[in-house]
């Protein structure tokens, strides 16, 4: 019985905050931030074990897998845009993903995080379903990674517009790629607010970063770790 309650509650609270956010556009009310916070407090207050909440909601999480398959649809629809800007998109994605592994490892060592936390941080620019797969491969934790991914996305969403002005970005390509590579799906939602083309480039960048990341990050992460270990 309790199992069903956590599932139904999750869907209802999500729909509630989705509508509130659509109306007011206040950043702290973005469902992906406020809903988990709501349930964390609720579980603590009611002394409800996470294991039971997880049992009730695991098929919701399962839908992240067919959602990954679904990325093939926008990729197919916008294939011509991808082909036309192949050089810019591929170089941006390859560079962005590689660079993000270096940056994250560097800061993690600087702050002296354990390797468990570092490995959970590394894939955080990649869209959640894939980031979770990567983290399990390199020895991080899925829940920590999911939370880091969300915070990364919200950072990108909040600061993206400011960065566009700061860097005086002109091309929709650079604007979109910045969101897609740096802030995955949450950033992409902001890119779509700026413009249809920006959003499309952002989602293409996000998909390619995920595909590239799933093959490449598990190979790259141990190498970068060794590289920094030599210096620090």
């Amino acid at each position: 019985m309790k199992v069903w309650i956590s599932l139904i509650m999750t869907i209802m609270i999500y729909l509630l905050f989705k509508n509130i956010y659509r109306k007011w556009k206040v950043i702290v009310l973005i469902p992906v931030f406020i809903c988990p916070l709501f349930f964390i407090f609720l579980l603590i207050i009611m002394d409800f074990p996470y294991e039971q909440y997880h049992q009730g909601t695991k098929w919701l999480t399962y839908l992240l897998q067919p959602a990954t398959v679904a990325f093939a649809v926008p990729m197919y629809k916008h294939w011509h845009l991808l082909k036309k800007n192949m050089v810019e998109i591929l170089s941006g994605v390859l560079f962005g993903v590689t660079f993000s592994v270096f940056v994250t490892m560097f800061f993690s060592l600087l702050f002296g995080f354990s390797s468990f936390i570092t490995h959970s941080l590394v894939p955080r620019s990649i869209t959640t379903p894939i980031a979770v797969t990567i983290t399990e491969k390199i020895g991080g934790n899925a829940s920590l990674t999911a939370a880091f991914v969300i915070l990364t996305g919200i950072t990108g969403l909040m600061l993206g517009q400011f960065l566009i002005r700061l860097l005086r970005l002109k091309t929709p390509l650079a604007k979109g790629m910045m969101f897609g590579v740096g802030a995955h799906g949450i950033g992409t939602s902001k890119a779509f607010e700026i413009g249809e083309i920006e959003g499309t480039f952002s989602s293409l960048a996000m998909i390619l970063a995920a595909i590239f990341g799933v093959f490449f990050i598990p190979l790259l992460a141990p190498l970068v770790e060794k590289f920094f270990a030599l210096w620090i």
Partner: peptide, 22 residues
Amino acid sequence: ASFLLGEMLLFFIPPVVGIIQF
């Protein structure tokens, strides 16, 4: 596909709540 991609944020909620274990 547009349904799954549009509501993807809903599917994120349970794993994020999982940080309660940390």
